[in-house]
């Protein structure tokens, strides 16, 4: 299997000069292509910070992160923007669709940034909206969609650039049970059919139950890293020793 994410010994410290707070502390994490991984832990455990570091939105103070062999900690901010565009899909807790664009335009926007020709964009859009089951909502603005529908569009947007993996920060936090279930079905289906790698932070037990690997963070350290079911699609590896307090 191919390694998609290879994070070595990464740490992120806030207030290093005064009272250092380790948001992420000496974390090792390896993700293979096609994994469906949940990052769990209490609030303040460093889940979002770890996702930001892996997603190239923030830089670690120590360690290095390789995405498909590229050390993203060495990239400039401009290079990082371009790297994110072509390699990483993002799904945010609060959907974060551009309110002035329609559902279709929100998804197409990313492909336009990538410079994909119109014909190919159209074909991909058709397929993506079929996959998220929102073919009849393509021309709706985000305000005209429910939370669940918006998050499905956000998933389509994340996949539009054909990324190496999708990072989802608490994707079901603002959804009702039915919408959350629908979203998880779609994500699981994409993972299975297209071998798309997903890593999401969550508190949601329903998400944890659907994950095939669960990494638990406490105080910025990985305490457990468990493959739950069906390891044919993922390889579980404990990369950081459990923190024993």
């Amino acid at each position: 299997m191919n390694t998609v994410i290879d994070a070595h010994n990464i740490s992120k410290v806030y207030n290093p000069e005064t009272i250092p707070v380790y948001a992420v502390n000496n974390v090792h994490l390896h993700l293979q292509k096609g994994e469906f991984t949940a990052l769990v832990g209490p609030s303040g455990s460093g889940k979002t910070t770890l996702l930001n570091l892996i997603g190239g939105l923030d830089k670690p103070d120590e360690g290095k992160i390789e995405i498909n062999g590229t050390d993203i900690t060495r990239l400039s901010s401009n290079q990082l923007i371009n790297f994110r565009l072509h390699n990483i899909g993002f799904v945010f807790q609060s959907f974060n669709l551009v309110p002035v664009l329609t559902a279709k335009e929100n998804v197409e926007f990313i492909m336009q940034l990538q410079g994909i020709p119109k014909k190919e964009r159209e074909a991909r859009l058709k397929n993506l909206f079929r996959q998220i089951r929102l073919e009849d909502k393509v021309d709706c603005r985000p305000a005209e969609l429910s939370g669940g529908q918006q998050q499905r569009v956000a998933v389509a947007r994340a996949l539009a650039s054909k990324p190496q993996f999708v990072l989802a920060d608490e994707p079901t936090a603002n959804l009702d049970s039915k919408s959350a279930s629908n979203l998880l079905d779609i994500m699981a289906e994409l993972n299975k059919e297209e071998n798309m790698t997903f890593i999401f932070s969550t508190h949601d037990q329903r998400v944890i139950e659907r994950a095939r690997r669960v990494v638990t963070l406490v105080d910025g350290r990985i305490t457990t890293d468990t493959a739950l079911v069906d390891v044919s699609h993922s390889v579980a590896s404990v990369s950081s020793p459990p923190l024993i307090t």
Binding site: L57, L85, V98
Partner: peptide, 15 residues
């Protein structure tokens, strides 16, 4: 927030 999101998704400085 929206601008940050667009930069996160890959909108470069020129755009």
């Amino acid at each position: 927030h929206e601008t940050g999101m667009m930069v996160a998704l890959g909108m470069n400085k020129l755009r």
